[in-house]
Simulated assay, not measured.
Amino acid sequence: MKCSRRNFIVGSGAVIFTTGGAGLSLLHSRKLDASEPQTAKRLGMVHDETACIGCTACTDACREVNKVPEGVSRLEILRSEPQGQFPDVSYRFTRRSCQHCENPPCVYVCPTGAAYKDEQTGIIDVHKEKCVGCGYCLAACPYQVRFFNPEDHSADKCNFCRDTNLAQGKLPACVESCPTNALIFGDLNDKTSEISQVISNKVVYRDKAHLGTQPKLYKVPHQKGEVSS
């Protein structure tokens, strides 16, 4: 299935969105998508669920660095149901945030161009001054990670700290703050980068990849229990 403007807009601006099941794509990646020019970056992230301890240092750092208002969040760490039997009980943790899709439905449905993909970095971002609050992008996002900022009333989401840490030559706040190095950030077009090496040499999956969004958030699955999106 391909994500296109036709998939999400039918008739006079009506948004139609179908997720199907809560699917995912398990894969062992050996090749990177070379469709983007090599001069441009494709910034992506890996969340290693085997290393994540659910401490939420990443969510706290994201909120502080990006001045995210109370009541909304650009990043969440979700905890599974208990696995095993007492006293041998464990949990698995997974990241919920913008996937920075190669094929972003939120961009296709935006009537004003507020939602856009930066072709130099692959980051999906928002021109806040162009946002009219129609909510089309919120409805179209298969991952339901967009929200309205209660202070400026525009669509908001993770942008890899583009205006804060990245602008200062730093890694995203979540990556910097992780005590177990469960987050890896870098250029997917650079085959020598750490993120490319991890994706090439470990089993990874992407949430709802069957929808054709081509998310750039990869996950190393937890080894206990069933992997699900």
Results as ranks from 00 to 15, higher is better:
228 S>Y: 09
205 Y>W: 07
207 D>Y: 11
140 A>F: 11
52 C>F: 06
15 V>C: 13
181 N>I: 00
127 H>C: 05
60 D>I: 05
217 L>R: 06
130 K>T: 01
166 L>G: 07
136 Y>M: 07
42 R>N: 14
143 Y>A: 11
46 V>W: 14
1 M>F: 14
217 L>C: 02
163 D>F: 08
213 T>G: 07
173 A>P: 02
53 I>L: 15
203 V>Y: 03
229 S>A: 15
134 C>A: 12
162 R>Q: 07
184 I>V: 15
30 R>G: 14
98 C>H: 04
135 G>E: 05
59 T>H: 04
221 P>Q: 05
143 Y>E: 01
87 P>Y: 08
176 E>L: 04
40 A>N: 15
32 L>W: 12
83 Q>H: 04
202 K>T: 11
47 H>C: 15
47 H>V: 14
113 G>M: 04
204 V>A: 07
126 V>Q: 11
101 C>I: 03
173 A>I: 00
78 L>V: 12
61 A>C: 05
136 Y>E: 08
36 E>S: 14
117 K>F: 00
45 M>N: 03
106 C>T: 07
55 C>S: 13
73 S>D: 06
79 R>P: 02
80 S>A: 06
166 L>M: 11
129 E>M: 07
102 E>K: 06
39 T>F: 15
6 R>G: 14
26 L>G: 13
6 R>D: 15
51 A>E: 11
54 G>K: 09
30 R>N: 12
64 E>R: 05
141 C>A: 10
171 L>Y: 04
142 P>N: 11
135 G>T: 00
24 L>W: 10
50 T>S: 14
87 P>T: 00
98 C>F: 03
22 A>V: 12
195 I>A: 01
67 K>R: 11
160 F>T: 02
158 C>Q: 00
167 A>W: 06
81 E>K: 14
198 V>N: 01
149 N>S: 10
55 C>K: 06
204 V>Y: 02
23 G>K: 10
145 V>T: 14
176 E>Y: 02
203 V>S: 09
136 Y>F: 15
221 P>W: 08
16 I>F: 15
95 R>N: 03
18 T>H: 13
174 C>M: 11
76 E>A: 14
94 T>V: 04
86 F>V: 02
84 G>K: 01
91 Y>Q: 03
100 H>C: 03
108 Y>P: 03
107 V>E: 09
156 D>Q: 01
177 S>A: 15
125 D>Y: 06
162 R>D: 03
228 S>R: 05
181 N>W: 06
162 R>F: 02
127 H>E: 09
159 N>P: 04
196 S>D: 00
46 V>F: 14
60 D>M: 08
153 H>D: 07
75 L>R: 00
96 R>D: 01
45 M>R: 03
67 K>C: 03
45 M>W: 05
159 N>R: 04
223 Q>T: 10
6 R>P: 07
84 G>E: 02
35 S>E: 07
